[in-house]
Design a protein around this nucleic acid. Structure first.
Lengths: 199, 199
DNA sequence: CCATCTTTGTGCACGCGTTCACAAAGACAT
DNA sequence: ATGTCTTTGTGAACGCGTGCACAAAGATGG
């Protein structure tokens, strides 16, 4: 039976082994003292807790470059996500294959969500269309939305929204870059300025 | 002179006003007691501190769907980023216009980075090409890399890498979705299981 | 069956970030 | 000028997550 110790895992992940053990303990006592954790069992337990063992049908709305990139992204399938449908308002796109799936018209949204029991929707439309799409998704029964459009969406209570801003990470890099470059020549008002930015 | 109080800003952002004031205080004393903060001045100071007032030339490597989506993304320009060039290994793409810019061959990387003093590179290539592209970027003088490829990159000290995994946010949504659905019918080993997932 | 050795699970202490609470500062009216 | 009122800036307290350190648990060998 292949096992790992918390020490090995912690070293590999670059974290403290006590923290790692404490985190694992929240999921139950899956380790064996003097031996470590059974790898296969541990993977299964974490996967289950994270929802990776379930099947999550999702719809992607807005099949532009970003929508297509998401449809082609391999990381979804391996994490339990299944693309139930690709939707777009552009009738010229209808039927075209993207990542092996035909693009369908936005008006099929309601029936697709109902038929596949979709609870998660991904919005990759232009900003202008995002709120309307959101409203339709919510009305159809979707309770979680991943928003790539640069707009703040308003949703009723009980619906989760997560917004992904592709430029935020770039901004963090630029912030650090500025620090690297400016440490010696940038005139600061008075003394140094502490970091107010995530690591 | 239009002003805002820390109370108003905190309410709008959904945070504590004291924390907001303390955060601002790290940038200097830009407020006026009894009045609040001068909006225009505050915006400028924050922009400057975050590096938004600078010009950051970036190169995007790998002009597939994701690379094209990034090139078209409007949020970059408004935050001080300027796409210096789009690069791809596929010679068939060379010269094609994406977001108004011609795609150039990867072999021009070194000269483009040097000529434009590019310090930030964006990798949107397949996983297999990411490390080689990284090495060339670093050798050419790039010191910050935003990696969209599903690989862990190794870089020398002094180079910053940030990895964006498009499926992580989806996974967080699924985790919460599981909680919503399973709170009443999922059999838990013993008692409840605390959350081990970001909010 | 006992001794020893390894590694888990966790109580406790420490440190850091958040929040409270208030004195200081400035605006504005009289 | 003086007093009042508003809002900042910050010292101090609080709370929570992280890390230390060790007892308990189980494996393994004699």
């Amino acid at each position: 039976m292949p096992t790992v110790s918390s020490e090995e895992l912690a070293a590999a992940a670059g974290v403290n082994s006590a923290k790692l053990r404490k985190d694992f303990s929240y999921l139950g006592s899956y380790g064996t003292r003097g031996v470590g954790y059974d790898v296969e069992y541990l993977v299964y337990q974490i996967s289950r807790e994270l929802g990776l063992t379930q099947d999550w049908p999702v719809v992607i709305v807005g099949i532009g470059n970003l929508g297509a990139a998401l449809a082609n992204y391999g990381g979804f399938a391996s994490r339990g996500f299944r693309v139930a449908a690709l939707l777009d308002a552009d009738t010229a796109l209808a039927g075209r294959l993207v990542a092996g799936l035909p693009v369908r018209h936005i008006d099929e949204l309601e029936s697709i969500v109902a038929d596949n029991q979709v609870s998660i929707g991904v919005i990759a439309t232009p900003a202008g269309a995002a709120q309307e799409v959101t409203d339709r998704l919510v009305a159809a029964g979707v309770t979680s939305i991943l928003n790539f459009a640069p707009t703040v969406l308003s949703v009723p209570d009980g619906v989760d929204v997560r917004k992904v801003d592709l430029s935020i990470e770039l901004q963090i890099l630029a912030f650090h870059e500025q620090r690297k470059a400016g440490e010696d020549d940038r005139p600061e008002p008075d003394g140094d300025v502490p970091a107010v930015m995530p690591a």
